[in-house]
Amino acid sequence: MRRTVASAALVIAAMGLGRLINDHVPLGDSADRPFVSTGEVGRPVVLDYAEVTVTAVHVTPTVMGNPASASGGRWLVVDTELLARTRPTLMSGFFLVDAQDHRWIASTRGSECASSASLSTGVRHYASFCFDVPRRALGGARLVATRGAWTSHESEFRRDAVADVDLGIAGSEVDDLWAQQEPLDVRESGPVPPGEARR
């Protein structure tokens, strides 16, 4: 009888311990959290598979193309330079994170707006990502770039290297950026530097 009580107590204690570990030890962090490298506009962020550089950030109501696409809010267009370091790499994850830690995905609407990037090793790739966002997403926005695409449970880039680049939009600049009317000509992504025509 005493043995039965002891083993019952042991089982209950083990279950309690499991519950405590589950509730209070950050297992999710060690199992899921990506490796984040932060950066800013104009400086390359070096990941183990690629270098990510944000070269310019634009805000416009209209992206030129065939046909021109008006935004629902405003287009936040992020120009990037991407370089695979050691092997050919497909990067499919490019999304925005705002100051409130909310996520915003890129639009595939403008024909020149990229949603992913196929990188040949050592060959610089130029790509622009277009985000159709409301005003609240602009201030403090960051571009996150990684290999796995964004999904609502963010499982595609677990334990992968992620570049997190501050786009340098201060809260005080948002009104001016929102008021801009100049349409933007987005260039086709690829290995040709912007401003240089294909040979």
């Binding site: 370091r85 050919p88 497909l90 040949s120 050592g122 060959v123 790739h125 690829g190 290995p191």
Partner: peptide, 16 residues
């Protein structure tokens, strides 16, 4: 000799 790989012809290759 450093183990870097340069590829052409794969469906996900950027050029070629």
């Amino acid at each position: 000799d450093e183990g870097r790989q340069y590829r052409v012809g794969h469906v996900h290759d950027g050029i070629g």
